[in-house]
Computed example of a mutant assay.
Amino acid sequence: MRVDLAGLSIPVGGVSGVDLHVEPGELVGLIGPNGSGKSTLLRSVYRALRPGDGTVRVGGDDVWRTLSARRSARRVAVVAQHSAEGFDLTVAEIVATGRTPHRAAPAADREIVARALERVGLTGTAHRLYATLSGGERQRTLLARALAQQGGVLILDEPTNHLDIAAQLDLLELVRSLGVTTLAALHELNLAAAYCDRVYVLAAGRVVACGPPARVLTPSLLGEVFGVRAHLGVNPLTGRPALTFAPLDTTGDPR
């Protein structure tokens, strides 16, 4: 399912005139400094923050003008940056909340929840309390909930925050393996470089560059947007793009 943003402006978050598209099955990353508008933009896609101008289309339909909240939730699932702790709910109960936008028979819902848990490798933890899980297991649970929602489009807002490196890699390997149209805000630039098909770079609420990571994440752009010296190379273990960083020199030259 395709996602299209055209002329999107959100005054409350400083986002202005953003054009963006995600092709079916792509993993597209949003990167930029803190406060650049990444989360604000995502919130407009999953219908949590109404834009002041422009359009958000998912599967060809305008999320705000054509689709109801329930119909939108059947198309767009989200793993948000700040998620509830889960209280005394089990993993299976958390995942089952993804079925809320649908009207299915209980048996069908249970089968969908079971399949979602299987896809993220958590079948054996279905009856554990969410609060007892590791950070990586919690993120997999929330991803399973999004899959149980059967939206066709997946929104991830800083999904690897507070995870150790192994859990970060496991989560993004899993996301890529799903083949679901995904738009993700990523704080860690090396993860964006390694896993995204394309990236959009935001600065002060505007898109300043977009395209494949190896073409976009140049030393000059990273120096201008993030205020660092950078080198873009190849990870010898994976063959994927890899970045190294250093502070800007005293002349401010990012090269």
Rank of each mutant, 00 (worst) to 15 (best):
A6D: 04
R145T: 04
S9L: 05
P247E: 06
R215G: 12
D62P: 02
A48S: 13
L189Q: 04
H231D: 06
F87W: 14
V18L: 07
G124V: 02
V207N: 01
V12D: 04
T141Y: 12
T90I: 05
S68W: 04
A144L: 08
L20M: 13
D157L: 11
A69L: 15
A204H: 13
Q150E: 14
L41Q: 03
R176Y: 09
R138D: 01
D19I: 07
N161T: 13
A105Q: 11
A204F: 09
L221P: 04
A107Y: 05
E188F: 08
G52C: 13
G227E: 01
L122S: 03
R176V: 05
Q168Y: 07
Y195K: 01
A116Y: 04
V12I: 06
P11R: 15
A148E: 00
V18P: 02
D19W: 13
A214K: 06
A148T: 01
L20T: 03
V201Q: 04
G86N: 00
S177M: 07
R229G: 12
L20F: 10
A126F: 05
L248W: 00
A185T: 10
P219M: 08
R176P: 02
V3E: 00
D61L: 13
Y195M: 04
E23D: 15
V76Q: 06
V175Q: 09
P33A: 12
